[in-house]
Amino acid sequence: MATTSSSKDCIQACAECAATCLECLVEMLNKDSNNDCPKCCLECAAICRLCADAMAMNGKYSQQICRLCAEVCNWCAEQCEVHDHDHCKKCAESCRRCAKACQSVAA
């Protein structure tokens, strides 16, 4: 897969999502959660970093990783958007943007 505009956008969305997820994770450390937030943030940040790396090197499995990344991002968004915290709302929005960008590349 050659580096295209959509893959560059996806790499950027993945990097931003990973950072936003880590911010949410840190903010949630001392807060109660009745769902998978902040655990989802840790998993999402990891897959986003992997996805960005795989796409940057035109990895053989980058499209499959993009599909998985979109799935994890959507799961994380579902968990975070339940909370009223600003950092959770910001994380959910970033996850949705990343999922959309990954789905575009994986299609």
Rank of each mutant, 00 (worst) to 15 (best):
L50G: 15
M57C: 09
A92H: 08
C102A: 08
Q79Y: 03
A45P: 11
D32V: 10
I11W: 02
C98Q: 03
I65Q: 00
C88F: 01
C95N: 00
K60V: 11
K60T: 12
E93I: 03
C91R: 00
A77S: 08
D86K: 12
H83L: 06
I11A: 02
L22F: 05
A52E: 13
C69Y: 01
A70R: 02
A54K: 06
I47C: 04
A18C: 07
C10F: 10
Q79I: 00
P38V: 10
C76L: 06
C98F: 00
I65H: 02
A52P: 04
A101N: 06
N30D: 15
R67C: 02
E16I: 00
A52Q: 13
V72F: 04
C44E: 09
C21I: 06
C98H: 01
L29R: 15
K90V: 01
A92Q: 03
A56Q: 14
S33E: 12
C95T: 03
D36R: 09
L42Q: 12
W75C: 05
E93A: 09
E71A: 05
C102T: 02
E81N: 04
M55I: 10
C40H: 10
S33L: 13
R49M: 13
K31E: 15
Y61E: 12
A56V: 06
E81Y: 00
I65V: 11
S33G: 12
K31W: 14
C37V: 11
I47T: 07
E93H: 06
A77P: 06
K89M: 07
C17R: 08
C37G: 12
C80L: 02
Y61Q: 14
C95A: 05
K100S: 06
G59Q: 01
C14P: 06
A101S: 10
P38G: 04
R67W: 04
C41P: 11
W75T: 07
E93R: 07
C41M: 14
K31M: 14
R67S: 14
Q12V: 07
C73Q: 01
K90N: 08
A92L: 08
A18E: 05
H83R: 01
Q103N: 11
E81Q: 06
R97K: 15
Q12N: 11
A92T: 08
L68D: 03
A99F: 00
C41I: 14
E27I: 12
A54I: 03
Q103H: 09
R96V: 01
A92P: 04
V82T: 07
L25E: 15
S94M: 02
W75E: 04
E78R: 05
V26S: 13
N30E: 15
L42N: 15
C44D: 11
L22N: 08
I65D: 02
E43S: 13
